[in-house]
Computed example of a mutant assay.
Amino acid sequence: MKLFKDIPRNVKALGFVSLLNDAASEMIYPLLPIFLISVLGAGPGALGVIEGIAETTASLLKLFSGWISDKLKKRKFLILIGYSLAAFGRPLISITIAWWQVAVIRFIDRVGKGVRTSPRDALISLSTPEDIRGKSFGFHRAMDHTGAIIGPVVAMVLLKYGMSLKNIFLWALLPGIITVIIVIFFVREKRVISESKTVDFKLSVLSRNFKTYLFVIILFTLGNSSDAFLILKAKDTGIPIALIPLLWIVLHFVKMSTSVPGGVWSDKIGRRRVIVTGWMVYALIYLGFGFSSNIWQIWGLFALYGIYFGLTEGVEKAFVSDLVTREFQGTAFGFYHLAVGIAAFPSSVIFGFIWQRFGSLTAFTYGASLAGLASILLLSFVREKERIK
């Protein structure tokens, strides 16, 4: 397609890697709670322990892997390790007989995510001309969301034809193997000529402007609670549980459809404007969820919610790339992912507390308010590089 003609080879390869990896992941993880409870006899507490350990591990490793990739000036090796751990680790869930074994495998999978994410984002940045960074990161996110649609659909079809949960988990090995092959044969290393002989593991090596951007990202994320609360709102409003997966597919379809246009728009008018537009969409959608009381409203809000992702996910990463020099790309992405990971946990705790104590409207208003405040601060205090004409 003409729209993707100028996307660099590395970005296309990493896009297909993310598509296949997410398809494999989404064949397993939507079914994981059912498997833990109905097959292994675990409870919600075990699920909480598994997910808590997994996500904390990933957030911390994203920081260190980014810095290591800058220090070694090599990204591909870390990317390969990360995807290999996920590809060959996830299917082992099919042979587990206890919940703690699932916890170990989930830990391995998240170690893989932590190892690969920051080096991968740095490689996308280094492989892409500055004037299409938004488009490249948008393309990568679009491919990721495509995989998130394919995975559950494949799992649902296999379940319909009578395949057991364990066998579905085992079949997830196939797309995982293909991801590893693509990384080995189609992803190319990008060398960086650095003026610095050493890359110190310090936030101080990054500009004050970038650190201000991180602060604003943390502030926004504190109001960006888990999407599980949106599922809860949908259920409370009257959407049948059987239709929740379809609702999720609609969300990912809109994410996929808007990611590239959002990135291209940011290449033309600037990152800040597009990010703030996305955050304002988020604020309005959250207020809409707070006031919604009909099923049709929930369907509409979920579809519109996908636009927020299309305007922000790839663009925020492109902005990270804009704000730091080439030799510190991995370190910068590491701090970015750590900031999001650190703020994500308390955001859901705070949101859940407000919901339980004061009701869903107050909780959604809290999220919308922080989005508005973050938007003001981004426009007021974070400088943007002049766009290339």
Rank of each mutant, 00 (worst) to 15 (best):
F139R: 07
F333D: 09
K385G: 13
E26G: 03
L232A: 11
L230Q: 07
M156C: 09
P8H: 09
W248A: 12
I81R: 02
G89Y: 08
S136K: 06
F77S: 13
L377H: 10
K160P: 08
R75P: 01
K113T: 11
D322P: 07
S38I: 14
A46Y: 13
F309P: 01
Y308W: 04
S94W: 08
T56D: 05
F35A: 09
V349T: 15
F358W: 14
L47V: 11
A363G: 08
P33V: 03
I50Q: 01
L304T: 00
V349F: 15
E327M: 09
W265E: 12
I184G: 11
F328R: 12
F345V: 03
A332C: 10
L60A: 08
S65E: 07
L232K: 10
L323E: 00
T128F: 06
W248D: 10
G306A: 01
F345R: 00
S125K: 01
V104F: 09
I34S: 14
I150T: 00
V180P: 03
L80I: 03
F302S: 02
S164T: 15
F358H: 12
S257V: 10
K317I: 06
L173T: 05
K113I: 13
E316M: 14
T56K: 04
Y83P: 08
L377P: 06
D200Y: 15
I150N: 01
R141Q: 13
L36K: 06
R141E: 12
G359A: 12
G262D: 00
L284R: 10
V102Q: 02
E55A: 02
K73M: 04
F351H: 09
K2D: 15
L301A: 01
L60M: 13
A332G: 14
I217F: 05
K74Y: 05
L159P: 00
Q101A: 12
V111K: 07
L40I: 13
M27C: 06
F77H: 14
L370I: 02
F319L: 11
I81F: 05
L373A: 12
T325G: 12
G176L: 03
E327I: 08
G82I: 08
R387M: 12
V260W: 02
